[in-house]
Write a protein that binds this DNA or RNA. Structure first.
Lengths: 189, 189
DNA sequence: TTATTTATTGAGTGGCTATTCAATAAATAA
DNA sequence: TTATTTATTGAATAGCCACTCAATAAATAA
């Protein structure tokens, strides 16, 4: 057989950039062809169709997201400090002029009402739930089950909030104040 | 002249339902034709184009949103209780199987990267800022400026959070616990 | 009444959409 | 080598997209 001349990961990463910026629908196959350098036939041969490619991108994206959370928390001096650092990083990201929120969040909103793509919506929802579970399992090292559960939800609400609030220009300081007000149990000083 | 045979408000309300469910791009003019009962030519004659219609819908939507906030808070026994009630209402909305989040939030995420529609994104961002200002001005009746400002941001972060978290099934109780954790200064009992 | 202005109609347009497919190329298996 | 399997190519396709426009209808202005 002819070896695959492209690297699957690179195609997924390049597509991820496009999907993150524009979302599922607004990213056309033509644009995917341009950014990946593959011909239409190759894409369909390797990935099936646009939705399947998107699903692979989503999978990769959520794996990277969870890995980043783990790295940040594991590398911090305490779990609470790691969580705080992750939140600060999320805020810092949103300053970037090319800020494009979170692909899982975007997908959740974009495809909720799409009858055909509903599985993609559920997929994104499940991944977000897993991120919440990750926070909860970290918290359970320090707090009781009830507290950990509540605080994990609270963290997710705040992250979702930042993902949207971040589109307001020059809002980083405001967001940090808001986070501090809502998450006073984190080691802010 | 021939009188307009349709009522502008009704057309906007019907379009609003569609746009809320599907977002800007995924709502086709054909679907707008179907749900409003107008012919394509009439829509273009009366509203200009899809983007202009959408802008009118957004304007109407944000006016309704702000009116609802005002009604809820003005009708409550205290400002804090009114805010709490508004949050509880927002959570309750998200239980609805036809839940479609918030059009301003959706627009913010959908059109941020769209070069042509960037004004729509900015428009939505400004309206969300005005809602934040509304909360702040209410809070300033009870708290100092600094506290009011922080808490208004905190409220917005939580509302945004609910707008996304709400897509998870059966999450109302969890969300309320999370809100209580993040907004302990509200009169929960 | 007649002239003018405005609203409605609905078939039609060009362009973009995701996707396909027969032909070709290249690698391995026999 | 020869046969078989798989990858790549890029032009082609059908369908949907936002949008237009000439014809018609209806209301007011004169």
């Amino acid at each position: 057989m002819a070896k695959a001349l492209f690297k699957r990961n690179e195609v997924i990463d390049k597509s991820m950039l496009l999907f993150c910026r524009k979302g599922f629908k607004a990213s056309s196959m033509q644009q995917i062809v341009e950014t990946t350098g593959l011909k239409p036939g190759s894409i369909y041969h390797s990935f099936g169709n646009k939705e399947a490619l998107f699903r692979e991108v989503l999978t990769s994206y959520s794996a990277k997201s969870m890995a980043k959370v783990r790295e940040t928390i594991d590398g911090a001096e305490s779990i609470d400090e790691g969580i705080l650092l992750h939140l600060k990083n999320t805020v810092a990201e949103s300053i970037n002029p090319n800020y494009c929120s979170c692909l899982l969040v975007k997908t959740q909103l974009e495809l909720a009402a799409d009858e055909n793509k509903n599985n993609l919506h559920d997929f994104a929802a499940n991944r977000l739930k897993k991120i919440e579970s990750l926070f909860r399992s970290y918290l359970e090292h320090e707090y009781d089950e009830e507290t950990s559960s509540e605080r994990a939800v609270s963290i997710m609400l705040h992250i979702f909030g930042v993902r949207i609030y971040g589109y307001q220009q020059g809002s980083a300081e405001l967001m940090l104040k808001g986070l501090r007000a809502g998450l006073p149990w984190l080691p802010w000083d």
